[in-house]
Design a binder for these strands. Structure first.
Lengths: 246, 246
DNA sequence: TTAATAGTGTCTCTCAGACACTATTTT
DNA sequence: AAAATAGTGTCTGAGAGACACTATTAA
């Protein structure tokens, strides 16, 4: 041991939010334009420093969610997603960032009551491909957050957090398709999702659709973990690994 | 935004290590007796403060692994496991802890070349049940680390990190049984583990056993992700959820 | 009617688990 | 021989995906 904590370095702590939602049939992330240096004028994730030494990190995440995105933290799914600590990630100082993943249902406007000017929903594909550049290591933070969301769709009821109070099975399928970035068979999805215990429960009336037969409405059920789980299709097995077996 | 970073609070950063290994057929975690306040004389996870502001957290984890446990970090599986930031978790100051999970193969002595006096392997069950008390929130850190190890056995080749250079299929089964805390059928395990691509590869000779037929030896294969995965048996389905259907 | 979406039934394949059975060693 | 562990074969049941089929709406 022999650690002398009086000489241990102190670091700054920020919270960054990866707020995901569906717009159209694509997954979007909320970005803000930075008003201060460094990276002034560039796009970045909403977030900021801890307010004071007594504020918990989760507490700060809730505060930033309300301040910067105008979203009611109580109604949103919010969970820690990752920690970013590369000593050179912020040119000013040693800054550690704790990322939080938030899932929002479809919202009519980019953001209502936003504190930061220039907040906007951006397709995650544009961020992941590098078409839209982000400040700091925020592209990596988005990538990790999206991957976490993808994984959690398999074994948790996270998908319902993308939907409103009630939704059809088709709505839910769109969530899975947008987040996973693949197409699913509607008939198999329909059967599968209803076999999961406590995932969705029937909620009264039908919803008229633009075309076709009206669909039943459902609400999120009490289950948090899915049994059986909604596994992603396995990546197609390529034969490239068998080269040395010829 | 409008965050004035000059007034943002700074925090201390520690790294804590959850080093797991198998001893006998039980899962053990490495603990040290604290030499300084707070919690002086009590058991805790090895770890410590960042050395300086330029040291990365992963770097610090490797350093502590060598200093406190005498283990060669290069040969061990080491990954970030969690972050602990409750403002009251350290009575002295605001201290954030980043936990790392390390997996060690069976070692002959409690620890060789250990810097900290009183380091010892302790059965994780004794920690999780509260039979052995730990300083700070270290019991929670152990619990989270063990759960992460349990989950990673399913989809990664982590289990081989508990074994030496070569091992039998029976050895590998003992890893799964000890970490998951359940018994597995040897015949099914044998078949299943060999169907996983690039998980284990045959390594020459047989190993004599105390009783019974000698077993083939294997080495860890190149695969990191397991296909198909080694899923834990599902928790038995209880009927308590069906009460409202009578 | 057609187009479109909702919802059902059924087949096949793969994998998990149960377990009978054979093989090879020590005592 | 018995005991013990290694390793194989086979059956059953559950779930995933393919896909034919029916149901109900708008245009």
């Amino acid at each position: 041991m022999e650690v002398d904590e009086w000489h241990a370095p102190r670091v700054l702590l920020t919270v960054d939010l990866v707020i995901l939602t569906l717009r159209g049939s694509r997954l979007h992330v909320l970005l803000v334009r930075r008003g201060i240096e460094p990276y002034q004028g560039e796009m970045a994730l909403p977030g900021g420093f801890l307010r004071d030494a007594e504020e918990g990190i989760a507490e700060a995440a809730h505060r930033e969610l309300a301040e910067e995105a105008g979203l009611d933290a109580a109604s949103l799914h919010l969970e820690r997603s990752g920690v970013y600590d590369d000593p050179g990630r912020d040119p000013r100082d040693r800054v550690i960032s704790v990322a939080y993943l938030a899932i929002a249902p479809r919202l009519p406007e980019p953001v209502a009551g936003t504190d930061a000017a220039g907040a906007c929903w951006t397709p995650v594909d544009d961020v992941l491909t590098g078409h839209v550049k982000l400040a700091f290591d925020h592209r990596q933070i988005v990538e990790d957050g999206v991957e976490r969301a993808r994984a959690k769709l398999e074994c948790s009821s996270l998908a319902t957090a993308f939907c409103g109070e009630t939704f059809t099975i088709s709505d839910l399928q769109q969530v899975y398709e947008a987040v996973w970035g693949i197409r699913l068979d509607p008939r198999n999805f329909y059967r599968k999702v209803q076999q999961v215990q406590d995932f969705i429960i029937a909620a009264g009336p039908l919803r008229k659709t633009e075309h076709g037969r009206p669909a039943r409405l459902f609400r999120a059920g009490p289950g948090r973990a899915l049994h059986p789980s909604m596994l992603r299709p396995a990546a197609p097995v390529t034969e490239e690994g068998d080269d040395d077996e010829r």
